[in-house]
Amino acid sequence: ILQTYRAIANYEKTSGSEMALSTGDVVEVVEKSESGWWFCQMKAKRGWIPASFLEPLDSPDETEDP
């Protein structure tokens, strides 16, 4: 089962193997590399994304803190 994550910042791809993101995009993580790059898919797009640009979809938003 794939894990679902949300983009927390815009990411512009710098090579053909990467995938561009916009803040709020929801992606499915296909593979996690120890290098800190994750292979993700979103609709018909697939590519590598730095893991630091993603957060788990089920994590609470910062605005929901008590």
Rank of each mutant, 00 (worst) to 15 (best):
S35W: 04
M42F: 10
C40H: 01
S17V: 10
R6W: 02
V29S: 02
I49E: 00
G47I: 02
L21M: 06
E62S: 13
D25N: 05
K13C: 12
Q41N: 05
V30C: 07
G47A: 04
S52E: 12
D65N: 14
S52M: 11
G24N: 06
V26S: 04
K45S: 11
R6H: 03
D65W: 08
E31R: 11
T14M: 09
V29P: 01
A51K: 09
I49K: 00
L21V: 07
W38E: 00
E31Q: 12
S17Y: 10
A20R: 06
A51Q: 08
S15M: 10
E62M: 12
T23A: 15
R6N: 01
L57V: 15
D25K: 02
E62R: 11
K45D: 14
S15P: 08
D65A: 14
Y5R: 02
W48R: 03
G16S: 15
I8T: 13
E12R: 12
E64W: 09
V30L: 15
K32Y: 06
P56F: 04
I49D: 01
A9F: 07
S52Y: 08
G47Q: 03
A9N: 12
G16T: 15
S33K: 15
A51C: 13
D58W: 11
W48E: 01
Q41R: 11
Q3H: 11
P50A: 02
P60S: 13
E31F: 06
K45N: 12
L57P: 03
D58C: 11
P60L: 12
T23R: 10
V27D: 01
W38L: 05
S33T: 12
E55L: 06
A20L: 03
W37E: 05
L21N: 00
E55Q: 10
A44F: 08
P60M: 12
V29I: 07
F39Y: 14
F39I: 03
K32I: 04
S35L: 05
R46L: 06
Q3F: 10
M19T: 03
G24V: 00
L54Q: 00
A9T: 14
M42Q: 13
D25V: 01
D65E: 14
S33Q: 08
L2I: 15
W38A: 04
E18L: 04
A9S: 11
T4S: 13
G36H: 04
E34G: 11
V30M: 11
G24H: 03
P66D: 07
E62H: 11
A7S: 05
E55S: 07
E12S: 10
E31C: 06
A20Q: 06
P66N: 07
E18W: 04
C40G: 07
D25Q: 05
E18Y: 04
S52D: 13
T23K: 15
P56A: 06
E55V: 12
L2G: 15
A7H: 00
T14Y: 06
P66C: 08
P60I: 12
S33Y: 07
E34Y: 06
A9W: 04
L21W: 02
V27R: 01
M42C: 14
A44L: 09
E31G: 05
N10L: 03
L21F: 05
W38T: 00
T23V: 14
D65P: 15
E28N: 08
K45V: 10
L57W: 13
I1V: 10
E34W: 04
T23M: 13
R46F: 08
G16P: 15
T23C: 11
F39R: 06
R46K: 15
Y11K: 04
I49L: 09
E18D: 13
I49R: 00
S59M: 14
G36D: 06
W48Q: 01
V29C: 06
G24E: 03
K13N: 12
I1T: 12
P66S: 10
E31K: 11
F53P: 00
Q41C: 07
W37A: 04
E28F: 04
F53M: 12
K32G: 02
S33G: 14
A9R: 14
G36F: 01
P56Q: 07
W38K: 01
P50W: 03
A51F: 06
D25P: 01
G47C: 03
V27C: 04
K45L: 09
K32T: 05
K45P: 01
P60T: 14
A20N: 13
Y11W: 11
G16C: 13
K43G: 15
A9H: 09
W38F: 08
R6A: 03
E34M: 08
C40P: 00
S59A: 14
G47D: 03
T4H: 12
E64T: 14
A7T: 03
K32A: 04
E64V: 14
G36S: 03
F53I: 15
K13E: 07
K13I: 12
T14R: 10
I8M: 08
S33E: 07
D61M: 15
K45Y: 06
E55T: 09
I1E: 15
S33C: 11
P60N: 14
V30N: 03
I8P: 01
V26I: 12
A20V: 05
G24F: 02
R6S: 03
S59N: 13
A44Y: 09
I49N: 01
F39M: 08
R46Y: 07
P50F: 01
M42T: 13
A7V: 11
K43W: 04
P56C: 06
K43S: 11
E62A: 13
F39P: 01
I1M: 15
K45H: 10
I1H: 03
K45R: 13
E18Q: 15
Y5N: 00
F53K: 10
I49C: 15
T14E: 07
R46P: 02
S35P: 03
A51V: 04
M19R: 00
E12D: 10
D65G: 13
